[in-house]
């Protein structure tokens, strides 16, 4: 490669550059790479966290393959990812379009409102929503009653039918703002001339949104979808605070299941197996989606 026509920095500069990269490299090696490798190694052992680990070969992986709770939890993660694409990414793009193209005079104010949940810690948001969902003094049931929809009142987080949807709603609320922010920046970068031309041709907001905005910000859509999927597959804190995976594991996701296996049942080896599987599946899922979206981009090269 060094013989290519590209400019190659003099030796001294390369050394300096590597030197500057070294701290980051060390941090990643110690806090990211080592734990992943260690978890992979640990997944071949049975270990209660205190005594010496026992080598069990592929036992943990075989157990994982037939563990209905794990697969159900993973299914919920995938469902969360699917809803995130609609309720977080697509909705955020729609909101960003409205803010930039339809009501630009209040866009800053609204952008701030959407960003508030992003700035607050997830634990606080979770605790806040626990109060909103409280069956007795929560805002959700009180609003339903005030609207004459009293028959809809229920114990949202304690009912195995509604616990998981209730958590998904909070997730969408929490992360929507981040995508709105990212999309507002992208939509602002779309050349004004395109919209002017469309307006002359008599295109309405619907056409302008789908035929101009979406293709023009496709790179941002792709990146945000990927972010949403990765975030959905590793989600933990909101579920942990809101339902702790309950009732009877009706809202269990992979991370909360991993946490319980490791820190309630003290099955560190199995927890490592779950974590290792989670990382591999997340990486594979993200890769596939990314490749697919790239092709879907079609002839809209800018």
């Amino acid at each position: 490669m060094t013989s290519s026509s590209r400019d190659v920095a003099p030796k001294g500069q390369t050394r300096a550059a590597l030197l500057f990269l070294l701290p980051a490299f060390v941090l990643i090696a110690v806090f990211v790479a080592y734990p992943i490798v260690y978890a992979g190694w640990l997944s071949f052992f049975r270990w209660d966290g205190a005594s010496a680990p026992t080598f069990v070969g592929l036992d943990n992986f075989l157990r994982l393959a037939t563990d209905a709770i794990f697969w159900k939890s993973l299914g919920r993660n995938i469902l969360i990812a699917a809803t995130a694409i609609v309720l977080q990414v697509f909705l955020a793009l729609l909101i960003a379009y409205c803010l930039v193209r339809i009501v630009p005079f209040v866009s800053r104010l609204f952008l701030f409102f959407y960003l508030v949940p992003v700035m607050v810690s997830e634990i606080c948001i979770g605790l806040l929503w626990r109060f909103l969902y409280n069956p007795y003094f929560g805002l959700v049931n009180a609003s339903l009653k005030a609207l004459g929809l009293g028959w809809l009142q229920r114990g949202w987080l304690g009912d195995s039918a509604t616990a998981f949807p209730a958590v998904v709603v909070v997730m969408s609320f929490t992360y929507l703002g981040l995508y709105v922010l990212l999309f507002v920046a992208a939509v602002r970068n779309v050349p004004e001339s395109l919209y002017e031309t469309a307006e002359i041709d008599g295109a309405g907001h619907f056409t302008r949104f789908f035929s101009i905005t979406v293709p023009m910000v496709w790179d941002a859509v792709r990146a945000n979808t990927l972010l949403a999927i990765i975030g959905s597959l590793k989600t933990f804190s909101l579920v942990f605070v809101l339902t702790n995976g309950g009732p009877n594991q009706a809202s269990e996701v992979v991370s909360t299941y991993l946490y319980k296996a490791g820190f309630s049942s003290f099955e560190m080896g199995y927890a490592a197996t779950i974590g290792f599987a989670q990382i591999v599946l997340t990486a594979a899922g993200a890769f596939v989606i990314f490749r697919y979206l790239k092709r879907a981009r079609g002839g809209n090269e800018r």
Partner: peptide, 21 residues
Amino acid sequence: FPIGFNGMSDQEANMLFLNGQ
């Protein structure tokens, strides 16, 4: 038991008890 007790924390149950509900 209270509505949605499986999703309520011990503290929330305590509020119901202490408030006379």
